[in-house]
Design a protein around this nucleic acid. Structure first.
Lengths: 345, 345
DNA sequence: GAAGTTTTGATGTACGTAAATCAAAAATTT
DNA sequence: AAATTTTTGATTTACGTACATCAAAACTTC
């Protein structure tokens, strides 16, 4: 049987109350006594029963999620996962609130963070926009002991406790590597369509993609990046223009959202087969495009995993517990039409 | 506040004892009364506090993991993850035992399952060998209410409760798709090296690979599969022979273990660059080979995720609880040298 | 060594559920 | 309607921890 506080009290030759004082570092214990107890804990290998402790404490975890609004299918998928987590709340002792803010708007995001601060939750998860006012708002949360996890797009150099998202430089590199190999022997430049250079994840994907093409596929020209604001209509216009201007375009890397526009433009121009398209995020539309061959590869981050991971980390950090790093690493899914999962999205 | 059994008793106008009888379907409740209670549960949205219930029950989960022995690096990785789970046991209320059996030996595996049966655990996780005596042994476990999860290699048509592993047909198809695209414009046949056709996962990978090459890359010849028994020395001999016999060999798909042999043979023959190699499982050796360019793509299943998933499912099924399917889907990692995770393996 | 302060012990209640016991009430059978 | 069986209620203990209270003991300090 695993040892309990009673066993420790016996082993250390002190009372239960003293063990309790040590465990919850309450005042009024001489350091000699504290040592005795800590030695007993070590020799017996005592681990606090978190479930029992939470039960006794009646602990719950008020959490706030802040996501960009708009029609971005991936973000709406994230939102759906947050709502699924809300439904599980009673079983997980969480109380989750959801805030939506305009996309790519640092000011609005900072305001939302301030609002979150006012509500004094145990933790906040936020899809970050990389801007000083956001960094500062995060710092203020941390200063009040509120755990902050960035989601999807990170805010390095800020005080955030954890990033729940993929390595976007690696994602960009992966896209570059696959694009380079798939186009072996074919001529023509490749284009990059981003959402906005204001968010870190897009900047990092671009950086990784460019680095690999530059270093490993030197002959391949990369056209200047175009920004589609994650908006399908705008993306369609931009891609159509690209296709017209570059009849020899060999590939397109779409590293943001709005892929409906990408697909529409490619099909409109009758270049769906000819142009190698690599895009991000599995949505109903992108899935269909992958299956039809318009999109060749989809890089994806599993929204469900990200949300569940964020919640696990928020709860653990709120309790000052360690997290299993390997378990919380969000992986880059690479989907070809052959390894698409059946379910959702 | 979330409702408790007391609230249900009040709402239903019955006593606590009756609520308890309904909740834990103990006998001695008229169906009218049972209905009243169930309606109260529904209207209040009561969810059992699993933590409190487990605490009260003093529940623990004795589990047995059965893995193949030998030097297979992936299996040793699995074992390491099982040991890591053992270390977490006190916090997770599990009591995990580990049994190792000779690889590809159905008789030995059936015996191990019988031994596991004798120990009467709550659940068993097993890397299956596809044979009738194994299927029967699994059935006997199930008949005694012991949960069975297959790990890595499945046993469909058996009574197992769940499979914790990747879709191996999809994995094979993915390898085929990538191989076909990477070799575009290059001539020459491709070879397949398996471990043994006795295990389902290898058969399925082969099937998927062949199907894609046959359907999408018709011109590409596939050489007859060779079986390396997941043994590096044997694999090296076989691959060396293949390379000698086929100077124009364009690619090799290694769908089993023993990749040290594959890499050695390729490098020995000076064909590391020329031949496109796709292999399975991230190990220190295969990682090095990927980084050096000898291996072009690694398909991987995360051993840590598989073990943790198996444990979650075993516990849930042992309690008759539902599992979050999407969370338990083990994904096929596709690693290029650009998206290798830093950590372990 | 008396007064004061700090440290420790003893004890009880609470969290939400499980499980058991015994008595009381209701339904069923005779 | 009495006897029997089934169903229900009331109450208690337990799980492992948190937290509070009050008294007793051990240290300081003068």
């Amino acid at each position: 049987m695993r040892p309990t506080v009673h066993d420790i009290a016996a082993e250390a030759g002190v009372s239960l109350a003293t063990v309790d004082r040590v465990l919850n570092n309450r005042p009024g214990v001489r350091s000699v006594t504290r040592d005795k107890v800590e030695r007993a804990i070590a020799t017996l290998g005592y681990v606090r029963d978190v479930a029992a402790a939470n039960l006794a404490k009646g602990r719950s975890y008020p959490l706030i999620f802040i996501l960009p609004g708009g029609e971005n299918a991936f973000m709406r998928g994230l939102e759906a996962e947050v709502r699924a987590a809300m439904a599980r709340s009673p079983a997980e002792r969480t109380e989750i609130a959801l805030l939506c803010v305009p996309a790519f708007d640092a000011r609005a995001l900072a305001d939302a963070l301030a609002e979150a601060h006012r509500r004094r939750p145990a933790g906040v998860a936020v899809v970050a926009v990389d801007a000083p006012e956001v960094t500062q708002a995060v710092k203020r949360l941390r200063d009040d002991g509120i755990v902050v996890v960035t989601l999807v797009s990170d805010l390095p150099g800020s005080a955030r406790d954890h990033f729940a998202g993929v390595d976007n430089i690696a994602a960009g590199r992966t896209a570059g590597n696959l694009m380079g190999r798939f186009l072996r022997g074919r001529k023509g430049p490749v284009a990059v369509v981003a959402g906005s250079m204001l968010v870190r994840d897009h900047r990092e994907r671009l950086e990784g993609f460019q680095a690999v093409i530059r270093d490993c596929f030197r002959a391949r020209q990369i056209l200047p990046v175009v920004e589609g604001q994650d908006d399908a209509a705008l993306v369609e216009k931009l891609v159509a223009a690209l296709l017209e201007r570059h009849p020899d375009l060999a590939g397109i890397y779409s590293l943001g959202a709005g892929n409906r526009g990408l697909v529409a433009a490619l099909q409109q121009a009758g270049r769906a087969e000819a142009v190698c398209a690599i895009a991000h995020e599995l949505t109903p539309h992108s899935r269909a495009a992958l299956l039809s061959g318009t999109i060749d590869v989809l890089l994806n981050q599993d929204a469900g995993h990200e949300i569940r991971s964020a919640i696990r980390v928020l709860k653990a950090k709120a309790d000052g517990l360690p997290v299993i790093e390997a378990q919380e690493r969000i992986r880059i899914d690479i989907f070809l039409k052959d390894n698409l999962p059946n379910g959702q999205a």
